[in-house]
Amino acid sequence: KARDLEEINWSVIWMVAGGFALGLALNESGLAENVIKSIPFGSWSPVMILLASGIICYILSNFISNTATAALLVPILAVVCKGMGDSLNSIGGTPTVLIGIAVAASVAMTLPISTPPNAIAHSTGLVKQNEMMKIGLTMGIIGLVLGYSLLFVLGELHVW
């Protein structure tokens, strides 16, 4: 309905769009690639790569949109994983790391910018940002623990 469109807080929609733009800018400018080349990932433990990428993704996804964060990190981690070669086989290979990114991005929901549903809920005025942060952080940590526990088990079983 036209009436529903009038009630949308468009500044929140623009904020989410800005998160997408930031993610694309990091990839397109080459900044993300330069960061990858400056860190010797080949000497890192596969579990460390999995956990570090998940934590970085979770933190970024709370400040940029989840989709933009995943779009930024998946290509970066695909390159990192390729450079690590067979050392990732102990945790299930590259798919485990990339699925970990999807899990971490999906559970990040502490701020309105994190996901469009959060932005819409916040724009109604019925959900306050401090409430969203408390519940989002709690659910995010629970989601990370459960998601990564399942990921470790499936990686160890070489499901993929």
Results as ranks from 00 to 15, higher is better:
S43R: 05
L51I: 09
N62I: 00
E156T: 09
H122R: 15
V80N: 00
L51F: 06
M15D: 07
L72F: 09
P117F: 08
G42R: 06
C57R: 01
N130A: 15
V35Q: 00
I101G: 02
A52F: 11
G147P: 05
V103N: 11
T69D: 07
I64K: 10
T96K: 09
I64V: 15
M15C: 09
G18V: 01
T110C: 14
K82V: 03
A78L: 09
L111D: 05
L150R: 13
T110K: 10
P75I: 01
Y148E: 01
A21Q: 14
S43H: 08
G136W: 00
M139Q: 09
V97E: 02
V145E: 03
P75L: 01
V16R: 12
H122C: 13
M133A: 12
N9K: 09
N130R: 15
A104W: 04
W160Q: 12
I120Q: 01
E156K: 14
L51E: 03
P46T: 01
L111H: 06
I99C: 07
W14M: 14
A119T: 07
I49K: 01
F63Y: 07
K128Y: 13
L31H: 10
R3T: 06
I56W: 05
G147A: 07
W160H: 10
S65E: 05
L72D: 07
S29I: 07
K37F: 14
C81D: 00
H122D: 13
S11T: 06
N130D: 15
T138R: 15
G143Y: 01
I91T: 01
I56C: 06
A78S: 12
A71W: 05
A32T: 09
V79A: 10
M132A: 12
E156S: 14
A32L: 11
C57A: 13
S106K: 11
L22C: 13
I135H: 15
G125H: 14
F41N: 02
G23T: 08
G92Y: 02
A25R: 12
V159F: 15
S65N: 13
A104K: 02
F41Q: 03
Y148V: 01
L154M: 13
T67C: 11
N130H: 15
G147I: 06
S106L: 05
S11L: 08
E131W: 11
G155H: 03
V107N: 08
I135T: 14
H122K: 15
F41D: 02
V103F: 10
Y148K: 03
I91Y: 00
L51G: 00
A105M: 08
P75E: 01
V107A: 06
I135L: 15
N89K: 08
V35P: 02
S11I: 04
I120W: 05
A102W: 06
T94K: 05
W10H: 15
A104R: 02
V79M: 08
S38Y: 07
S11P: 03
L144K: 01
A119I: 03
T96V: 04
T138D: 05
I99K: 02
C81Q: 06
S53Q: 04
L22H: 11
I8C: 10
S61F: 04
